[in-house]
Design a protein around this nucleic acid. Sequence first.
DNA 1: TGTGGGAATT
Length: 747
Amino acid sequence: MNATDSQQVNSWFYLSWQSSSVDHLPFQSGPFKAHQFLIDVSNTSVAHSSNPTKERLFPLMACLSPPSTFPLQAHNLDSKPTEEWLLSSLKSPKTPMQLKTFHAHIIKTNLTQNDLIFGQLFLCCSISNAMNYATDIFSNIRKPKLFFYNAMIKGYSQNGHHYKALQMYSLMRSRSVSCDSFTFPVVLRSVSSLNEIQTGKELHGVVMKMGLYSKLILQTALIDMYCSCGSADSARFIFDRILERDVICWNTMIAGYVKCGEFNKARELFDRSPSRNVSSWNTLVDMYCKTGDIEIARQFFDEMPEKDIITWNAMLSGYAKIGECESARKLFDQMVKRNVVSWNVLITCHVHNRRFLEALDLFRMMQVSDVKPNEVTVVSVIPACAHLGALELGKWIHGYINRNHIKMDVYVNTSLIDMYGKCGNVEEAIGVFDNAKVKDTFLFNTMIEVLAMHGRAEVAFRIFMCMRREGLKPNEVTFIGLLKACSHVGMVDTGLKYFEMMREEFGLTPKVEHFGCMVDLLGRAGHLQEAHELITKMPMEPHPVVWGSLLGACKIHGNVELAEEVALRLVELEPQSCGNYVLLSNIYSKAGRFNEAVELRKMMKEKGVKKQPGCSSIEVNHVVSEFFAGDRAHPKCKEIYEQLDKMVKRLKAEGYEPCISSALHDVDMNEKEQTLVHHSEKLAVAFGLISTDNRTPIRIVKNLRVCDDCHIFMKMVSKYYDRQMVIRDCSRFHHFSNGSCSCSDYW
DNA sequence: TGTGGGAATT
């Protein structure tokens, strides 16, 4: 849809999203996009949900599908649902309420003995992710037929409950229900997912004993199982002994080699295969995308006799993997048909390449396309909100998930916790954590990290205990979170305890990141020498970030000598990174050693070090605006600069003095002051003040550290403009309120 | 009711 096409406007309906019940995200305003968006009324759920005919429908039918997909013309409204209609309706996912209605109807009409219909209800539970309901029904069947066992196994397997699938298989064996050739492929699937090669081998034996081994389908399933468990040779042993292989069997073996990383063998087999279909080619395209041989992948892509949507998506994700957003977008635009995967790949590509606003724009475009976002989509988009600090957008997507019944899996919950944490809303993050049905290591790690970020160390430790109680094994990332928690509140002893624990108790080898955290912890707490010593004793090459932590600590504790040594080391390691020069220069200035500060700036000039542009983003009315220092791209640019002038005048009257040493440019004083005044976070604050009422906290995200001057400025703004402000810089949160900051000026 | 191929989190 082209929102700017004026000829279309008559048939479109202007709608600002806040006032509507339609679930679309507003278009990005930012500096470039329209504030409002257009919707085709004839094609939305609004039109259908207000349609009075719905009330007159047969009640069972009325509760079936969301209004937008309701097949109004599909059946006779006066008659009862036919068996065929029931069968076909049960092929698409249902809400728990809808499942109950169907179940009740089936019982009332004595259809429970109808294997086809009752079985379909069963399968419907499985595709609706309602295995609890299926389990209930199953446990009430006195003597389940083989079919029901198969359906249960399939349901568990497809919903990711692989252990339960295997348990169900064991149950049927223990009840002496004999399996058939439908049982094994599904059970083997779960075996593959669990990487349980031993169980797989046992099943192989059972298949042989039952005389089912000659079935090509089962041999293919076994090949897949062995490859998924990393045993390509066993698979090949089976493959070589099959007399008549079909194309699926060939494909399974080729894809199996790819799974095991044996790319040459995969290629060899592909070249030898007697017949190929689209899937065979797709496997090869995908393989070369994965190995990074994008040109060869493209060659295969161009040469193949026919392409399906998976071909296109595989190629698309190839470009995405190497970060080529432009090529990906070009290919995406050439696609005749796109599905949810195509959109997801493209969105993820943009997020991974830090093109967050574009990713959000794509998400908006997706919502007005004919493809419905799913849980993978939101897991791709939510991190974009997290990075931008776009709390309102993030909340909106959270609501969107609920309203659209998008599956809240462990990925979705993890990204929500991370987003709420990074957007400064810890309580909400804890809420999501508490409500998460499945909690895995990722989810726990994220919760711990969020608590650490906000200085809630004690809670983080409790969550860690909880994690251990649940029998989850902590990994390296868990300990990074714990160590960060310690360093933010200065708990040196506890930090040392965890550092020890990860090695002694969990056999984890500390990585450079862990040493970084330890250096940070010791340094912040003032143990500069110990921190320095730890760096020299590290078993690996200290990453610049580790030195950076020590440098930061030197700044906090005003140790100019050590700072100098560390900074020179850093300048050697990363001569093009401006942050180190900035920090050292600030340290010199603070110590009154201005000559050295000037020298340093000269050095930067000579080496051609460019300052990384500071960028701050702020979200106003669900729209994220980005500001660079001195930026004039925003539509409200004029008002913003006027407001900023007013603010500087007002605060100067209250005693604000621009802290010139924060300006690193070798220019005259006046210009320096201007540079400072136009720092990106000040522009963002000015915009926030003119765009929101004074009860709204201003939330800003900055890509660099907040400079001294801005820090002082923000404290004063919070006091004299009576505003709560939360600024997230590249390492922590600053909560400004009534003239002071939560970081107590140490950052 | 079964086999192969594309997407996600700290």
